[in-house]
Amino acid sequence: MSDPNGPVLELKDVAVHFGGRGGLFASPGPVVKAVNGVDLTIGRGETVALVGESGCGKSTLSNTIVGLQAPVSGSIRVAGEEVVGADRRKLNDIRRHVQMIFQDPALSLDPRSTIGATVGEPLKVRGVAKGEALKQRVGELLTQVGLRAEHADRYPHQFSGGQRQRVVIARALALEPGLVICDEPVSALDVSVRAQILNLLVALQKRTGVSYLFVSHDLSVVRHICDRVVVMYLGRFVEMADRATFFANPKHPYTRALMSAVPQADPVVQRGKERYVLSGELPSPANIPSGCAFHTRCPLATEICSQVRPELTPRPDGALVACHHA
């Protein structure tokens, strides 16, 4: 690949839409604009958190980056190579640099395959290793995630939820990707297990220099693990900042509402904090409000907000914010 110090991922004006065309038999339903005009760069060894409510487009964007979903426009570069429009062979080559970890480890493991077969599969398929070498590499990967080489012969049901997520992580790391997309990797796990997996992800990053795009709605986890935060609302980024700036000085009214809504595990802090409860529900992405998509729920909204869409603009402390009044 090109520049070894360049970014692992560059998104330019990426848009992903669903439906609308109405095939031969389908009724031409409304177009769901799940992702719209998104720009993002992730550097080597960096962790970027992507936060936002259900349906805002986090998984759609993740799926698009790994090539499970095609964008309607925009450019996606992985380690400098363009993904959009690339031929099959090239795509295959690019994709080994990006792996994905999903929320529910139970659903991402085949119950009939041994742990060893699951972790070794990407190596075997790509002909990276076979026979004794494959077995040894699988053993190394399992050890790296805190399991043991002997575990290779066991099946998923013989493991706890946290151990299964370790298996999923081992498989994601098998091809030494530059970027791992973690879609809510700890949400399904108990608190005490969650801490083990977060520690593991951090340790692996320190050792291998892997970058993460970390999708989560848990802001205390995000604050712990990320270098930068991106907030998404109805398919668009509304705020982007480095961790310290983001948590010290959140600016977009939606970001502030999210922060206020996440309960802190401390009754004194939680009961003393400023409340900023949003009214109303998330509008449908098939019917995105005009102007600023947040104006229907925003406590600061004025007339201009429903008419003109605010662009992401830089602030003195380096944050990018899309709001007329923040």
Partner: peptide, 11 residues
Amino acid sequence: SVPTLDDAPKS
């Protein structure tokens, strides 16, 4: 085991 405001990031 719950991350808090006082933790150093990535600790």
